[in-house]
Computed example of a mutant assay.
Amino acid sequence: MSSTTQKLIIETARQEFAERGYGATSIRDIARRSGMSLSALYHYYPGKQELLRAIIDEGMDEYFHSCEEALAGAGDDPAGQLVALVEATVRFRAEHPSKSSITITEQRSLEPEHLAAYEARIAGATQQWAGIIQAGLDEGVFTTPHPEDARRAVIAMCNAVAQWYRPDGELGVDDLVERYVSLALTIVEYRPRGVVRRPAR
């Protein structure tokens, strides 16, 4: 498969889904926008569902990779790990809104077997956040009496960045990260033992 052609199809389908929604987009729309014939497009992807799965998988792969890189420099301190995950998530959502929005909202359009694989990956990510918050509680640096609610709140606010953030607005990504890190630490009721240092980028 030509990687160039594959990237063209994926990017075109992503734009169509982001602008019109999965349900309102047809394979013909994607083929027309990419300048390909229907038969040529079907040669690479047999249908719209396969395109959606490829788009979601690509977005999740990139996001999880960014989280892994951030955590690799965060050390063993739960507060540092939470800061790393918040920063990675906010940056990715702000810098890749289409990839983020489709991954978050169009999972409802996945067929059952594809949805099961998606949910398994999300469950793993959720457990990672939960594990960090629990570690903070165990070490006495997080004091929230509601860890599950805190986890949901932090993840939700970070993910929502993809829906509202605009790069031409008054708030830059670095400022946004600083604000959301502060909010996340407030939500988990962080009680520092010392200075939390953000991992070097």
Score class of each variant (00 low, 15 high):
residue 1 M to I: 07
residue 1 M to A: 07
residue 3 S to M: 14
residue 4 T to S: 12
residue 5 T to N: 06
residue 6 Q to E: 15
residue 7 K to S: 14
residue 8 L to I: 11
residue 9 I to E: 06
residue 9 I to W: 03
residue 10 I to E: 12
residue 10 I to L: 15
residue 11 E to H: 14
residue 11 E to W: 02
residue 11 E to G: 14
residue 12 T to Q: 10
residue 15 Q to A: 15
residue 16 E to Y: 09
residue 18 A to D: 15
residue 19 E to N: 14
residue 20 R to L: 14
residue 20 R to W: 13
residue 24 A to P: 11
residue 25 T to P: 11
residue 26 S to Y: 04
residue 26 S to P: 12
residue 26 S to K: 07
residue 30 I to H: 08
residue 33 R to W: 06
residue 34 S to M: 10
residue 35 G to N: 03
residue 36 M to K: 03
residue 37 S to L: 08
residue 38 L to I: 09
residue 39 S to P: 07
residue 40 A to I: 03
residue 43 H to G: 12
residue 46 P to Y: 00
residue 46 P to Q: 05
residue 49 Q to M: 10
residue 49 Q to E: 15
residue 50 E to M: 12
residue 52 L to G: 03
residue 52 L to I: 07
residue 52 L to S: 08
residue 53 R to S: 15
residue 54 A to F: 04
residue 55 I to F: 09
residue 56 I to E: 09
residue 57 D to L: 14
residue 58 E to F: 05
residue 60 M to G: 10
residue 61 D to A: 13
residue 62 E to Q: 14
residue 63 Y to R: 10
residue 66 S to V: 10
residue 68 E to T: 07
residue 69 E to M: 12
residue 70 A to I: 04
residue 71 L to I: 09
residue 72 A to F: 02
residue 73 G to L: 01
residue 82 L to W: 00
residue 82 L to R: 00
residue 83 V to R: 07
residue 84 A to F: 01
residue 87 E to Y: 01
residue 89 T to Y: 04
residue 89 T to Q: 13
residue 90 V to T: 04
residue 91 R to L: 00
residue 91 R to E: 01
residue 91 R to T: 00
residue 92 F to I: 00
residue 93 R to P: 00
residue 96 H to G: 05
residue 100 S to Q: 08
residue 104 I to A: 06
residue 107 Q to T: 13
residue 107 Q to N: 15
residue 108 R to M: 13
residue 111 E to S: 12
residue 116 A to D: 12
residue 116 A to R: 10
residue 121 R to T: 00
residue 127 Q to Y: 03
residue 128 Q to R: 11
residue 129 W to K: 06
residue 130 A to M: 13
residue 131 G to Y: 08
residue 132 I to L: 04
residue 137 L to T: 11
residue 138 D to Q: 14
residue 139 E to Y: 03
residue 139 E to V: 08
residue 139 E to D: 14
residue 140 G to V: 11
residue 141 V to T: 12
residue 142 F to H: 09
residue 142 F to L: 06
residue 143 T to W: 03
residue 144 T to H: 10
residue 145 P to N: 09
residue 149 D to W: 13
residue 149 D to T: 09
residue 149 D to H: 12
residue 150 A to M: 03
residue 150 A to D: 08
residue 153 A to Y: 07
residue 153 A to W: 04
residue 154 V to Q: 04
residue 156 A to C: 01
residue 156 A to P: 07
residue 156 A to S: 11
residue 158 C to S: 06
residue 160 A to K: 01
residue 160 A to T: 05
residue 161 V to R: 02
residue 162 A to S: 15
residue 162 A to M: 11
residue 162 A to Y: 00
residue 163 Q to H: 12
residue 164 W to L: 09
residue 164 W to D: 13
residue 166 R to E: 15
residue 167 P to G: 01
residue 167 P to H: 03
residue 168 D to S: 12
residue 168 D to M: 08
residue 169 G to H: 01
residue 169 G to V: 02
residue 172 G to K: 15
residue 174 D to H: 02
residue 174 D to Q: 01
residue 175 D to W: 00
residue 176 L to F: 00
residue 177 V to T: 01
residue 178 E to A: 12
residue 179 R to F: 02
residue 180 Y to E: 06
residue 182 S to Q: 07
residue 185 L to N: 01
residue 185 L to V: 02
residue 187 I to M: 07
residue 187 I to P: 09
residue 188 V to E: 05
residue 189 E to A: 08
residue 189 E to P: 05
residue 190 Y to D: 03
residue 190 Y to L: 12
residue 192 P to D: 06
residue 194 G to W: 08
residue 194 G to L: 04
residue 195 V to Q: 13
residue 195 V to H: 10
residue 196 V to D: 02
residue 197 R to P: 13
residue 199 P to G: 01
residue 200 A to K: 11
residue 201 R to A: 11
